[in-house]
Write a protein that binds this DNA or RNA. Structure first.
Length: 206
DNA sequence: ACCCAGGGTCATA
DNA sequence: TATGACCATGGG
């Protein structure tokens, strides 16, 4: 995938905080819609924890509307902003060890394992491998997993079979998402699906 | 008129 | 542990 697509330089965001907001807003949602919501927050000048905590729910929901689930996501966004400020911000949180930081993130209402790992990898620069729907689909089609295993089981499968290199974790996940978006479609049409595309590419490039 | 998108929580069995 | 319902917008 790297040879095919080249380096991705992920995650698309201008700041650590924007990574966190994007991670919440992209839950089961097309990134294009997330961008609209992020632009609303930027135009309003409220893309920071204090401004979001100060905003009323109604107004926050209006900004988030394009990303869907706007009532729930308004609350989740406030929850993680409250968590950030109550724990001294990035400076203080960066001192924690990864397992403790992960548990702290998971204790925030609305932050599940994938969202926590998005934040750990791309905002806190911790080498955790993110398991999303694309990862499950692509690697079950490739025959490495069945697809419905527990999140942490698949995560450890990757982490125990890769060198613990931060930049690789970032690139690998980005490549999986790009490949999932462009080639590995939901309904497997085996002339078009990722197995043939990837394997054919690997053969020609090797 | 469908299906899909970079999940998570809650109730139920 | 394992399903199902629910959240909601915009694009194909």
């Amino acid at each position: 995938m790297f040879r095919r697509y080249g380096p991705r330089h992920w995650w698309p965001a201008d700041s650590k905080f924007e990574v966190i907001v994007g991670a919440i807003l992209t839950q089961n949602t097309n990134w294009k819609n997330v961008e609209r919501a992020l632009n609303n927050l930027k135009r309003a000048g409220v893309l920071d924890p204090d401004s979001i905590l100060a905003a009323h729910h109604e107004r926050l929901a209006t900004w988030l509307r394009p990303s869907g689930y706007f009532n729930i996501k308004s609350k989740r966004l406030r929850n993680i902003c409250g968590w950030l400020v109550n724990n001294g911000g990035f400076r203080e949180l960066q001192q924690m060890r990864t397992p403790a930081l992960r548990n702290a993130l998971l204790s925030v209402h609305g932050v599940g394992r994938e969202t926590a790992d998005d934040i750990l990898l791309y905002a806190f620069n911790r080498p955790v491998f993110i398991i999303d729907a694309y990862t499950r689909r692509i690697f079950s089609r490739l025959g490495f997993i069945q697809g419905n295993e527990d999140y942490d089981v698949i995560r450890r499968l990757f982490e125990s079979n890769m060198a613990r290199r931060l930049s690789d974790y970032k690139e690998y996940h980005a490549l999986i998402v790009l490949h999932g978006k462009t080639v590995c479609r939901p309904a497997p049409d085996c002339e078009q699906c990722c197995i043939n595309k990837l394997c054919a590419f690997s053969r020609t490039e090797r």
